Computed example of a mutant assay.
Amino acid sequence: MVLKIDSFPVGDLQANCTIVYDDESKEALIVDPGGDIPTILEKVKGLGLKVKQIYLTHGHFDHIDMTGQLEKDLGVKTSIHPADVPIYEKSPQLMMMMLRSRAPLPTMPPVATHKEGDIFKVGPHEGRVIHTPGHSPGGTCLLFDGILIAGDTLFRGNVGRTDLPGGSWETLVDSIKNKLFVLPDDTRVICGHGSDTTIGYEKRRSPIL
């Protein structure tokens, strides 16, 4: 039984949606679906996946857009860290402001919550929640064996922005140094935007050092 990862950009801001699945049981978890539901559903159907849940690394609109519709299409629930629930609920306003749109504001559906140390299972594989505030108060990463789905906490050669409501540069640096840089250097990092990296590469190249 092998853990499979399919990560691809979605939406206007090209946030990475990641589908984590077990190649034998076909159980799957969708992380940060963004706004491209047709592509996600096509991949789910093509791979014959049984999606168990939607997981949000944080509450910014480019990672959560259309989550409610995807819940209905797949018959699953969504979870996010409780500290980001207010950001999740207000994400449509932020989206309209940043895109300078006057379209009607959608209402975000209720979400479940996850916290530091919670476990998400995909077949026999376990993903552990790591709370990494800084980009947002409730930002989290999901660590499977040797694979870190980092959301907007850590990018290749860069880190998440901290100038949005609830962001903190000092908190982000602390999260990265004390929670992510303690992981093995060969840990693969799937970033919320852009290409993958590794913990070892970021230890050598990250501007926070």
Rank of each mutant, 00 (worst) to 15 (best):
A112L: 15
V159D: 08
L148F: 10
E89K: 15
I30T: 04
L143Q: 12
G46E: 11
M96E: 11
T67H: 00
L99H: 12
I19E: 07
T140P: 05
V111G: 11
T132I: 12
P104C: 09
K4R: 15
V189D: 10
L70M: 07
G151C: 02
L154A: 05
S7I: 01
V189C: 06
H131V: 14
V129P: 03
L29W: 06
N158M: 08
F61K: 03
G134V: 12
P86C: 12
L143P: 03
E202L: 13
T107C: 01
D22K: 04
M96R: 13
I149T: 01
A15E: 04
S79Q: 13
C191H: 02
L172V: 11
S7Q: 11
E89R: 15
R102S: 15
M66F: 10
N178A: 03
G166W: 11
L154S: 05
E71W: 02
H193K: 12
K4I: 04
Y201L: 13
Y55V: 14
R156G: 10
D185F: 00
K43S: 10
F8N: 05
F144Q: 00
G200E: 10
V76E: 09
T78G: 07
P9N: 08
M98C: 05
G48H: 08
R128A: 07
S91F: 03
M98T: 07
M98D: 07
